[in-house]
Every structure is written in structure tokens, then in C-alpha cells.
Design a binder for these strands. Structure first.
Length: 496
RNA sequence: GCCCCCAUCGUCUAGAGGCCCAGGACGGGGCCCUCUCAAGGCCCAAACUGGGGUUCGAAUCCCCAUGGGGGCACCA
């Protein structure tokens, strides 16, 4: 049982090797929730030890993404903290010292095998249908000889010396004890020939030094879990609580999310990259709600704010099985959280999308249109399609769309003329003043509201789908409304 | 090939031996509301992978099978 009264120190430790994706965000969320719930600290650590794969800007994207989501970290590369530095390439010496400690204690050894030899070795093993593994050539070197070759300047790496006998029992919070035969674990490289550590060393050292209490990481680490536990034990350190999170599967449920799937998702208005999500009009509240539920469950109400999540989150309801991504459900949560936003807040969030679409936004109009689009949009940018016409000087309806269902162009024109006559007598043109007489007119003409209002909708907004008609008219203003109806009548009359 | 993990409606999940002929949410279907589109309300269909145990009793515990996933780098 987890003690939620003890402040936890949890970290998210992404590598800056590409766009920040869903998996990182969700791990960060769980980290954040546990930290906040226990009054502990949420830490960002950048694992940039693979210099070849590091991408410029990726680190910034991670920091921006976390902040956009509202997952502010207490310690990290750009905010500092008592356990820094928080960027692994700046901790080089620390790892080298620790690797040496392991060698001195007999838990690790220098290895002089060239990448070339290793490659050939693996190929032969494959040919013999054996599992690829290090053959232990340098493990058998005497410490003296190894030291001599190191001193002579020969290139080397440091490998962890896995016990050959027995088994290792590692404890995962979600899965219980995991027992693995030691012979199945390779002598992994922990310090590379460039002097930088691999994950296996770096993460263990940092988690210890940074006093991490709970390690949330992807289940792809389960395979090397016993190795990590052995490394920690070789140092004589206490282990953190290990929490291996399930991976995300592509929407079909068949396999991990791939580049191909990611590209398809984008076409569809979705993405696994946090940065895209923002552009696509998703809001952090919706995204967070959706993410928290993939791998963790609640028995009652599932519409949750960040504060709700902090209150309800626990380790007991984390789910070890893989979860297929369901973007449709993201749409739902996004729409739901948009509707939960106060109007002024929503207005402020929608505005940039209108600006980006090239509209010059008038704030008073924006404020009036916001409540109208609120319950009709799924993403913020939907507001542009729905309500962009409010910022246009003129609209140009498609002539054929002006014709009401079941009516001829001439009949539609006649309906519009009568509507114009009624509206002409309404001043000011408000919902309250315009709707009752218009409904009377519809009845008098023996037509349906759908028919008449439909004609006016297209005439006034230029769209077949729009916010409610009279509300829209009130915002657009009497003069423009009347002018647009006149123009529509002309267009209808021109159709024979 | 070897190692590890997982297994409840199409999907995300609740369920920690009797409260379950299995609950919620998304999606789907229907109805209501309605000026379009939504939103909202009500209703319906939809699952414990299979087989063995253990037990008075199993979705819940154990074993096997099957299926799915992850890993086997001087990447993380």
C-alpha cells in the first residue's frame, strides 16, 4: 500500500530525440499527480546521453509542452533545484566516478571489444539460432591486464558484470514480483567509449542521487528491469518504487504507434505529438482528462479537472495492460472541457485561431459569438469554420443553397421578400423582437420554420450550418442583415 | 529463436471470492427537444479468451493453452 502522506519525489526523464509525444506527457501527468497528491516534488530531467540522436529544439519542446499542459515542474534544467544539474550531459563526471566504483567493487569491467567484433559475433549467434548476447571475452580478463590496457590508452567501454548464477527478483508496483534467471541478462554496456553513460547507469545513478522515490517509466523497460535492480543493489542503494506503465497501442489495437500511424492521425485532425495538439485546437484540460484515463481508471464520474485528478489519483488503479489510443474519445473530452470554460476564457483561447485564419478580430463581436459556438465545437479551431463569417464584411452564399427544401427558387424568393418586410419593421433587430413575428409569418405562409429560416441562414451567414439564426442576426447588425437578404432575393430572382 | 509482461463490451475502464445473469464512459442505434449544426435528456444493443483445478460459491485465486504486447544496441 502506498503511503500518500509521504512527500514523493518523482521525475519525468525524456530524451530530446524527437517531438514530445503522448507517452511522455502521460508519464509526466502521473508523476505530477503523485507529487502534488503527496506534497512532493515533480522533476524534469533531460536524458541526452546519446549525442548522435539529440535533436536541437527537442528539449525546449518538452519544456514548452509540459508548461502548456499545466504540468509545471519544481526542479529542472531551466528552473534549477538542489539536485542539479538536470541535464545528463552535464553530469558526465558523476557517472564516470560511479562506473569506477562499480569496477573497483568487482561489479563491472572494462571491455575492449570493437563494434566490429561485436557485430560479427551477433551475426554468428543469429546463424546458430541463438539469442544475441555478449560472449564475455573481456569479462574473463584479469583486473591487472584490463588496467594495463586501459592505461595504455586502448579504447574501451564498461560493462556491468551480471551474476551468472541464480535469479533476480524485482518488484513492480503494478505486477508484483518479477523473477528472471540471471543467465538471461547480458553484460550490458553502462559507460560508452565516448565517456558518457548509457541509460542503465545514468538513470540509476540520477534516481538515487536525486532521491527519487517512485520511478514511472514505460513497460519497454521491463526487459532490463532486473539489470537495473542489480545495478542499484551493487551500489548498495535502496530501490525506489518501480511503476512500469503500459505502452500505447495504435487505434486498431495492433502494435505500437508507428510513424505511418502518426501521419494518418494528423490527416484526421489528431496527433500523438503534444505540439500538434495545440495547433489542432485541443485544450490541455481535455487532453489531460483523456490521457489520465488511458492506463488508470475511476469507478465514478470520469470528467476530471487537474485538481480532481490530484484528489483521486492512486497507484492502485493503474492498469498494467496496453491501451489502444482512441482519438474519438479525445474529441469528446475536449468538447466537454471547452463547455466547462467560462465565456471570457473561451473567447481568449479561440481568438488566436481566428487571427491565424486571417480575420481581424473585434473583441466585442468575439465576446458575443463565444457563447454561441461554445456548445457546437469540439476543437478551438472549429470556431473559425462555424463563426468566421461574423468578421466578414460580405458573405457570398451559393445560389443553390438559398433554395429551401421543397420550394422553387421563385417560392424561396417570395418567402425571403416577406421575411425582409417583417424584419424591416423590427428595429432594433434583436432576438427578442425578431423571432415572434417571424414565427407568425412562417405560419401564415404555411411553410416550416426550417424552410424559411434556412433561406435566411444562408443569406445572412453564407453557410448552411451556423449558430442560431436570430442570435447571429443580432450580432451582425440590422443594416447588414437587411442588405444581405436583399442580395439573396436578387440572386434567387435571377435563377429561372 | 530466446526472455518478460498482459488478458472484462468495438475502445478506455469499474470490479480486489458471494453486493455481478457484470457498472460507467466513448463510439453505435432509437426516441425527445429543435431554425441548421451541436449541446442536453431518456432508452437499447454490446464483454468476463478457452480448458482444467481450488472453493459451498470465481470475472476475481492457481495451472495449462491461446491470443496480444514489449524487449533481446557503445538508443533511450
Amino acid at each position: 500500500m502506498t503511503d500518500y502522506t509521504k512527500p514523493a519525489r518523482v521525475r519525468v526523464a525524456p530524451s530530446p530525440t524527437g517531438h514530445m509525444h503522448l507517452g511522455t506527457a502521460r508519464t509526466a501527468l502521473y508523476d505530477y499527480l503523485l507529487a502534488k497528491k503527496t506534497g512532493g516534488k515533480f522533476i524534469l530531467r533531460i536524458e541526452d546521453t546519446d549525442i548522435k540522436r539529440t535533436i536541437p529544439g527537442a528539449e525546449q519542446e518538452i519544456m514548452d509542452g509540459l508548461r502548456w499542459l499545466g504540468l509545471n515542474y519544481d526542479e529542472g534544467p531551466d528552473v534549477g533545484g538542489p539536485f542539479g544539474p538536470y541535464r545528463q550531459t552535464e553530469r558526465r563526471e558523476i557517472y564516470q566516478q560511479h562506473a569506477k566504483m562499480l569496477v573497483d567493487k568487482g561489479h563491472a569491467y572494462p571491455c575492449f571489444c570493437t563494434p566490429d567484433r561485436l557485430e560479427k559475433m551477433r551475426q554468428e549467434q543469429q546463424k546458430r539460432k541463438e539469442a544475441p548476447h555478449y560472449d564475455g571475452l573481456c569479462r574473463r580478463l584479469s583486473p591487472d591486464e584490463a588496467a594495463r590496457r586501459v592505461a595504455s590508452g586502448e579504447k574501451y567501454v564498461i560493462r556491468f558484470k551480471m551474476p551468472k548464477e541464480g535469479s533476480t527478483t524485482a518488484h513492480d508496483v503494478l505486477r508484483g514480483d518479477i523473477v528472471i534467471e540471471n543467465k538471461n541478462i547480458d553484460d550490458y554496456v553502462i559507460l560508452k567509449s565516448d565517456g558518457l553513460p548509457t541509460y542503465h547507469l545514468a538513470a540509476m545513478v540520477d534516481d538515487h542521487l536525486m532521491q527519487i522515490t517512485h520511478v514511472f517509466r514505460g513497460s519497454e523497460w521491463l526487459g532490463t528491469f532486473p539489470l537495473h535492480v542489480n545495478i542499484v543493489r551493487a551500489f548498495g542503494w535502496d530501490e525506489p518504487e518501480w511503476v512500469h506503465l503500459s505502452v500505447f497501442l495504435k487505434p486498431s489495437g495492433k502494435g505500437k504507434m508507428s510513424k505511418r500511424e502518426a501521419a494518418d492521425a494528423i490527416k484526421d485532425g489528431h496527433s500523438i505529438f503534444i505540439k500538434d495538439m495545440q495547433d489542432l485546437g485541443f485544450i490541455p484540460e481535455g487532453l489531460l482528462n483523456w490521457m489520465v484515463l488511458m492506463g488508470w481508471g475511476v469507478s465514478d464520474g470520469d470528467v476530471l479537472t487537474l485538481n480532481d485528478m490530484i484528489e483521486k489519483f492512486d497507484l492502485e488503479h493503474l492498469n498494467p495492460s496496453p491501451a489502444a489510443i482512441n482519438f474519438t474519445k479525445l474529441d469528446h473530452f475536449n468538447g466537454t472541457h471547452i463547455r466547462l470554460l467560462p465565456d471570457p476564457e473561451l473567447a481568449a483561447r479561440i481568438k488566436p485561431y481566428f487571427v491565424k485564419a486571417g480575420y481581424s478580430v473585434k473583441d466585442d463581436v468575439l465576446m458575443k459569438l463565444t457563447p454561441l459556438v461554445k456548445e457546437r465545437i469540439v476543437t478551438l479551431d472549429d470556431a473559425v469554420d462555424m463563426a468566421g463569417f461574423f468578421f466578414k464584411e460580405n458573405v457570398d452564399p451559393k445560389p443553390e443553397e438559398l433554395i429551401a427544401k421543397g420550394l422553387t427558387p421563385a417560392q424561396s424568393a417570395e418567402a425571403a421578400r416577406q421575411a425582409l418586410a417583417v424584419l424591416n419593421g423590427v428595429n432594433p433587430l434583436t432576438v427578442h423582437a425578431a423571432e415572434p413575428p417571424m414565427r407568425e409569418l412562417v405560419e401564415k405562409m404555411g411553410l416550416s420554420a426550417g424552410q424559411v429560416f434556412g433561406i435566411l441562414r444562408v443569406a445572412v451567414t453564407g453557410q448552411k450550418v451556423s449558430p442560431p439564426l436570430f442570435e447571429s442576426m443580432e450580432i451582425i447588425g440590422r443594416e447588414k442583415v437587411l442588405a444581405r437578404i436583399r442580395k439573396a432575393i436578387e440572386m434567387l430572382e435571377a435563377m429561372k
